Amino acid sequence: MLKPTKKYLIICTLRLGDILLSTPIAHSIRQHDPHAQIDYLVLKGNEGILEGNSIINNVITSPHRTSLFNRIKEYFFLWNKYDVALSPVSSDRARWYCFISAKKSYGFYNEHTSKLSKHLLTDSILFDDLNTHTVIHGQKLLSFLTISPSNTVVPPFKELDLSKFNIHTPYFVIHPYPKFNYKMWDKAKWIELIKYIKQKSVEVILTGSSDKNELEYCHDIQQATGSLNLAGKLSLGEVGALIKKANCYIGPDTGITHIAAATGTKTVALFGPTNPVKWGPWPIGNFSGNPWVLKNNPLINNIIIVQGENGCVPCNKEGCENNLLSFSDCILNISVDHIKNLII
Rank of each mutant, 00 (worst) to 15 (best):
K3S: 10
K6Q: 09
K6P: 00
C12Q: 15
L14Y: 10
D18K: 12
P24D: 12
S28C: 07
H35C: 11
A36H: 08
Q37N: 07
L41D: 01
L41P: 01
V42Y: 02
K44R: 15
E47H: 10
G48F: 10
N53R: 08
N53F: 03
I55H: 13
I60H: 11
P63F: 12
P63A: 12
F69C: 04
K73S: 12
N80F: 01
V84W: 04
A85W: 00
S90E: 04
S90L: 02
S91G: 15
D92I: 06
N110V: 00
E111T: 10
T113N: 13
K118T: 06
H119A: 13
D123E: 12
D123M: 09
S124H: 13
H133N: 15
I136F: 10
S143L: 07
F144M: 06
L145T: 03
I147E: 01
N151M: 14
N151H: 14
N151W: 09
V154I: 14
E159N: 09
D161W: 05
L162W: 02
S163K: 11
F165G: 02
F165C: 04
N166S: 15
H168M: 11
H168I: 08
F172M: 07
N181M: 14
N181H: 15
Y182K: 09
W185I: 00
K187N: 06
E192I: 05
I197D: 06
Q199R: 14
Q199T: 06
L206W: 07
H219I: 04
A224D: 02
N229C: 13
A231P: 03
K233G: 01
G237R: 12
V239M: 13
G240N: 12
A241Q: 08
L242R: 14
I243L: 08
K244H: 14
K245R: 15
Y249W: 05
I250K: 09
A261P: 01
T265P: 04
T267N: 07
V268K: 08
A269F: 05
G272E: 05
N275E: 02
P276L: 11
P276K: 14
P276Q: 14
V277Y: 08
K278W: 06
P281S: 07
I284L: 15
I284R: 15
N286R: 15
F287Q: 11
N290S: 09
P291L: 13
L294C: 03
K295G: 04
P298H: 14
G308I: 01
G308N: 04
E309P: 00
N316P: 00
E321N: 08
S335Y: 04
I339C: 10
I339D: 05
N341M: 09
